[in-house]
Nucleic acid binder design. Structure first.
Lengths: 246, 246
DNA sequence: GATATTTCAATCATCATACAAAAGCAATTG
DNA sequence: CAATTGCTTTTGTATGATGATTGAAATATC
């Protein structure tokens, strides 16, 4: 931060940081939807970089739907429902503010539609190698014990591998939102260890279903996992909205 | 095209065109996955614009996963499975080459997972206004008669409105891929008019289901539409791969 | 006074140039 | 032969200038 309270970045490899900084300020509603961003020159002063960097950052933000540059008029901030929320980078920029977006519920609904279908396809089409990848992720989950970082990472790897094994490019692209969902839900339910043991076991059954090419079982396991995820999400949301207690 | 056979663009509002041109050349495998792009200065010559424009174009392409810039080394073209294929712009760049991507099948599978779920949610949550929007699109489909452009546009509007009515941001974002699927499938099955009448009728039933808040009927209608879409897709693929006849 | 036209300032879009920093390669040297 | 050093290439950043276009203010016209 500089004396004006703005996020300032250092010189050498500054592009990514500036982009992130502007995105963060947009997420923080310092620049609200519908507003015009300051002029390019003002943004230069604000973030302490040249117009080159500012313009390239704006181009990136524009390509992801956060802003829209109107020729010779200015750059307006887009409404949040215009953002490419399926984009990994956008999700990273949003970060913990995802709780303000009512996104986690949408993601859970989407997972309910997508993951059981992907599990079925994976049971049909997964190669031996891909099943092994899924199982390795499961082993990592099982051995993570109390290490929640490690567990989350393994869980993400499990679901990503599963989507990969579905051999469907669209499903695979959606791993970014599932990753986000897992990261924010699991951190919330870290104290409930029993539940995690249950989850590990269902994951194991899912690997088994892949081996057996049992599409119905695979779908069923996926649905069970999503029921657990729903409970975890409820906990996570309650934690992040303590003002909503009656 | 200039004397060297490269796509050249004129000066005034050149950014979008250059980006599209580079993307097109990548899609056409003029720059293949794993290859390094020419240096920025060479790209300037190739496309006849300044480095500013080239760099901003590369930034956009990078933000969508088509290329990856390695500092002080060069820009490499990414594998196609790294591209953000859920991005509207990327899909536009791919254009008719989508048949080479094995994407339409993936999209159909994804639609089977997503649209019935979205239809259910829409039946629960659509506002009166949103149902009216869906119906307006249906009317437009019905009145399109032989005008296939108009029919396609209305069909896209119908499905987009439906996703909007599901009040799920994730589903709504996926309207881009559904749009692409509709555009390429419908143009292929334009001679089969009976089938289109059948489709119009099922669309009508879906509107009715929304009115009645009948989630099961909505899901069922959606599934029926996807069966039709599957048949249309088969026709479209056969048309675009005439060499695959045994 | 209201409306249409013109002018003008603001701002983005592009260009050209310069320099810094770093990665890769080659030459040099122990 | 290996390790260091230095050079070249290429990207990253900065800066200033010019063109083009939009929106609004100023002016002219009715």
């Amino acid at each position: 931060m500089d004396e004006a309270g703005n996020t300032v970045v250092r010189r050498p490899r500054v592009q990514k940081n500036v982009t992130r900084a502007i995105a963060a300020d947009i997420c923080a509603d310092i620049f609200s939807a519908g507003d015009f961003l300051p002029t390019e020159n003002d943004l230069c002063d604000r973030y302490g970089v040249s117009r080159t960097v500012i313009r390239e950052s704006l181009k990136i933000l524009e390509s992801k739907g956060l802003v829209r540059g109107r020729s010779r008029v200015g750059t307006v901030v887009c409404r949040k429902d215009e953002w490419n929320i399926l984009d990994q980078q956008v999700l990273e920029w949003i970060g913990p503010r995802i709780f303000e977006f009512d996104l986690l519920n949408c993601i859970l609904e989407a997972r309910r539609a997508i993951e059981p279908a992907a599990a079925e396809l994976a049971a049909e089409r997964a190669t031996v190698q891909e099943i092994a990848d899924v199982e390795r992720a499961w082993l990592e989950m099982r051995d993570a014990e109390g290490d929640i970082e490690r567990f989350t990472k393994a869980d993400v790897a499990f679901h990503t591998s599963l989507l990969k094994a579905s051999h469907n490019q669209v499903f695979l692209q959606l791993s970014s939102i599932i990753q986000v969902a897992l990261e924010f839900s699991l951190h919330a339910s870290n104290e409930v260890v029993d539940r995690r043991d249950e989850a590990v076991d269902i994951h194991r059954q899912l690997v088994e279903a892949l081996r057996m090419r049992d599409t119905a079982a695979a779908r069923n396991c996926s649905l069970q996992l999503l029921s657990l995820a729903a409970r975890d999400l409820a906990v996570a949301v309650k934690k992040h909205q303590p003002q909503a207690s009656s």
